[in-house]
Design a protein around this nucleic acid. Structure first.
Lengths: 200, 200
DNA sequence: TACAATTTTGAACGCAGTTCAAAATAAATA
DNA sequence: TATTTATTTTGAACTGCGTTCAAAATTGTA
């Protein structure tokens, strides 16, 4: 009967992650409540803390899924594109497109901060690295002169820049670019980066 | 005696903003506590809510000061630089330098989110616009062909990109660029943007 | 000085994450 | 199968926080 028990545990755990994911997607990270989740999952409040160290740990699970979802979109985006520069553009647009389609899940990735001293779990960092590798690949083709080390730096800088543009545009703190304008602005931006990098 | 009262009110208000500013600078936005502040300020808990609508309003005051401080650093940074492209680089470095010197205050600017529906007060938006104008100015010199509208878009995109690079580098979520490497990486990055923009 | 208006106060409220002793359930043993 | 032991689940209770508001203190006025 051990299987039955641990199976139930596992399926409840998944159910809770599912529910948290939906909640974050629909109402944002700040709307997540331990009590709501346990009620929806049909378990006791304390059971949540049997499944997860704390709410942060649960959020990490949801964010990991978001990272995977972004990665999958990126995978599809570059699938039939042979040219490396076009691949990079496609990646940027896929990122924007995901952020637009899933703004609250996407924002949760960056809103969520672990308390100081606490490190990200390795499996989470690996997801991040995997995402970064998506960028490294086409960049390596464009800049065969880059060492692995430089390549890694440039890939992260490139990601950071695109992320910044998407981020500030979708946050409505700064008076916004109209949403339609954002596509062409991002397109042009990646062009500028590529051209600049080539002429450097 | 009316003057005495409103003067005291005003100085208590300033004192509370001062205290909140120090607290955020030293221990981050998430360490701010209404009870701590009132204790340190030597007033009752309720008095805080006579001075500020809520804690968000207080945070906005602190963030406004941070924006002003950034603006001042930028002002100094470009003071003796005639060349527009060098000014833009100097602005980027001033931004990085401020973020590095005041990481928690700087992070509070972006960590803090008002609840949905609630708009930023106009005086705050104006500070943001003022900061943006710092970038618009040299960019206008470099690209006299830009209309005012395009100029505004490009300035914001430029800011967003630089912010993204600084942001992701200082957040320790992504495996970090060594701090020394960041300066030269940012320098090169702005070069790429400028060169790319010129050749576009 | 007596009264009215204003300001300050801090106990109390609601809500949220987290804990943990007790209850329920499952496993092991006789 | 009946009994004991181990494991898991439970939810009331604890703590900490932002916020409120009736009462107290203070200030202004007649």
């Amino acid at each position: 009967m051990r299987d039955k028990t641990s199976e139930k545990r596992h399926s409840l755990r998944q159910k809770i992650i599912d529910l948290a994911q939906v909640q974050i997607a629909n109402f944002g990270l700040s709307s997540l409540r331990a009590r709501d989740l346990s009620k929806e999952a049909g378990c006791a409040l304390g059971s949540l803390y049997n499944m997860f160290e704390d709410i942060d740990a649960l959020v990490l699970e949801v964010n990991a899924r978001t990272l995977i979802a972004i990665d999958e979109k990126m995978d599809v985006a570059v699938a039939n594109i042979p040219q490396a520069s076009k691949q990079l553009k496609a990646l940027a647009h896929a990122y924007l497109s995901f952020a637009r389609a899933n703004p609250l899940s996407w924002r949760a990735l960056f809103e969520h901060h672990l308390p100081d001293e606490i490190e990200l779990p390795e499996w989470y960092s690996e997801s991040l690295n995997h995402l970064m590798a998506r960028i490294t690949q086409p960049l390596a083709v464009l800049r065969v002169d880059y060492s692995a080390e430089v390549l890694a730096k440039r890939a992260r800088t490139l990601f950071a820049a695109v992320h910044g543009v998407v981020s500030i545009s979708l946050d409505n703190r700064f008076v916004g670019l109209a949403s339609e304008a954002l596509d062409s602005e991002l397109d042009r931006f990646v062009d500028v980066l590529l051209i600049g990098s080539q002429h450097q």
